[in-house]
Write a protein that binds this DNA or RNA. Structure first.
Lengths: 374, 374
DNA sequence: CTGAAAGCGCTTACAG
DNA sequence: CTGAAAGCGCTTACAG
């Protein structure tokens, strides 16, 4: 055991200052009344002893730790790293500590993380739930009066705030742009993990103008946008154009992209559903002999740093990741402060970034290409 | 104030189980003796009430929080994100919590972060100190018996463990490879922020075979490797080839790279000293009309995901970032467990990754190129 | 404005 | 093996 110096306590300060611990506490903790005279005595005693408050003791009494917990998918990914940065900025600004955990998209991990955060008595948590159906552990947190803000993804019917982006719109706009350029075979590479349906079945569901995908996971919402753009342009859907990696891994995406691109009637454009899918897809493209954008157009959902300086620069649907984190943290702090307005949903807009990875399709052997802008 | 349910305490469990709180504590906390009979009673009572231990109370007594704190430069950067991931894995595996803060390379922030961590009573911390000279706040932490492990960078004369990579060797090997290809004007873009010397002065210092740069900041160690490679190859040094961004920003690097590349006797190869410098440099290259690797060879210190699938793929000096984080965390946990061996330095090896962004130089107007491998 | 006392939810000697 | 008591370092009523 490392022999931790016992540390100077409020009792030591009180003794040196010649006051009660109650008084010392009042000036050091900045609560209650205190005369200027005592205040100065206490402060100089604290200074002399190098006093540092023990926040654990304070929290034990007040029942509040000024700490928020985060359950991210993987803090190493640029997506979560940026979100965390936003959360961290708001936390710091408000003198809150931040405990961070990963779920690795694994519900057992998520449950374990939530338990840890609970035992550490966080005042609230920001969670990116990994299973839209498995939320009992989160329900019990909310029931215990500890506020949760969900980010990016959500559990059905959990009465908790949510911060995300308009996935359908962002995907729709990207795919519509490809269609407007004349592309008729547009591939999509996405996780598309949860969901009891096949791509065919989803196409059928999502083709109904009234279909609402708001509660689905992001990649499905993005596929919904893909479907809508096709419907609007009157371009038929082909399930064979959808690469479903099912797991959140670049390798899976790379494999799907290879399959799609090696097909004889391969897509002339690809829409990738998130950062990892983009990485896998670009790895597949790098191994192919296709040149962007002439042989293949690409648009990526989520804008990563490097997309701006590779050649060709990649078009992207940018998500305000930092702002999402900030909004989630701010919302959580509001809840912690007692705001009990009804459940809030903050859906942020995405931004289309045009850089040069999109061009009209070249005619492929055996395919007639007709350009119809919309 | 959100009305937090009071929560069920060990007293509630003890009452329901019909035992003393001491006994309940022993079985729930898994310390001391307890009969099978009492154990079962307590456990089922705890189950029935949905008891969750309050770790704050436990920590207040034991003096240990099973929490480690981290002060990173910027959790959003891939470098720190990977390191954090490694730290997080080890922490989780050992049931430790993780409090994360950013310094933003600002000493005031760093001091503030350290204070927060101290007040939260972390058992130890991992710090990437932002000022090699300003370490009083860290000295006092160590003096208080709280172990610190420094990562990537270190404060002079702080008696604390360190985990980093062999910067000089990694840079040396990269630059030697460029020299072997025949490059004679190799530019370097680096932070090179701290240090009281000019580039000329540093060249003079570092040219002495006995010069030791171990305690310098990474970018200077990397420049030292650059110098050594040149000395070995008998190639003269030119201070004009060193772009010193001074601050840790891609914009600064981009500006430096633009300056270097627009020079009439521009370098035929660039060595970038870290991820951010690479991003800035690549942005400058993308805006130029130079083609890699024919017009310009590039090697980057730190291997980022995208370098593997851009065209041309970029050669890099890979740092074992995740392993660095794991090693730092493991070392810290050892210290927390009482290991008081002398100060440890773990210097990990880098790995040269050859992908195709290096080629022999083409003769530039007015320059004779002679190829001399070493 | 100040102090003595109680108490937050646990763990730790100490008897038995 | 178990329980009564004390106590970790603070804050919070409650008198005065």
């Amino acid at each position: 055991m490392s022999k931790k110096k016992t540390g100077v306590t409020i009792t030591d300060v009180a003794r040196l200052a010649g006051v009660s611990t109650a008084t010392a506490g009042r000036v050091l903790g900045d609560y209650g009344y205190s005369s200027r005279e005592k205040r100065e005595k206490v402060l100089s005693a604290a200074q002399a002893l190098g006093y540092r408050p023990n926040l654990l003791a304070r929290s034990l009494i007040t029942g509040r730790t000024k700490t928020i917990g985060v359950v991210a998918g993987d803090i190493q990914s640029p997506f979560y790293a940026s979100i965390l940065r936003g959360i961290s900025d708001v936390a710091e600004r408000n003198d809150f500590g931040l405990i961070i955990t990963n779920s690795d998209e694994n519900i057992e991990h998520e449950i374990r993380s939530v338990r840890l955060l609970l035992e550490k008595q966080v005042d609230g948590m920001i969670v990116s739930p990994c299973d839209p159906e498995g939320g009992e552990h989160l329900v019990s947190v909310v029931a215990a009066g500890i506020p949760i803000v969900q980010i990016d993804r959500q559990v059905h019917s959990l009465g908790a705030d949510f911060v995300g982006v308009d996935n359908k719109q962002g995907a729709h706009d990207a795919v519509a742009r490809l269609l407007a350029q004349g592309h008729r075979r547009i591939g999509m590479i996405g996780e598309l993990g949860y969901g009891d349906w096949s791509i065919e079945e989803f196409f059928a569901l999502a083709s109904a103008p009234s279909y609402a995908s708001d509660s689905l996971y992001p990649s499905w919402q993005r596929l919904h946008g893909y479907v809508e753009a096709h419907r609007e342009a009157g371009v038929p859907l082909d399930p064979m154009l959808i690469g479903r990696s099912r797991s959140y891994s670049a390798q899976g995406a790379q494999h799907q992209a290879q399959m799609l691109l090696s097909n004889k009637s391969r897509p002339t454009a690809l829409f990738t559903a998130d950062g990892l899918m983009t990485e896998g897809t670009m790895a597949a493209v790098a191994e192919s002999d296709l040149a962007l954008p002439d042989d293949l157009s690409v648009i990526c959902f989520d804008d990563l740093d490097w997309m701006g300086f590779v050649r060709p620069r990649l078009d992207a649907v940018a998500q305000p990741r930092g702002a999402m984190g900030e909004a989630a943290a701010q919302l959580l702090l509001d809840r912690i402060a007692g705001n009990d307005e009804p459940e809030k949903r903050i859906v942020m807009r995405t931004r289309q970034i045009v850089r040069g990875s999109v061009a009209p399709p070249r005619a492929l052997p055996g395919q007639a290409v007709s350009v119809t802008g919309q």
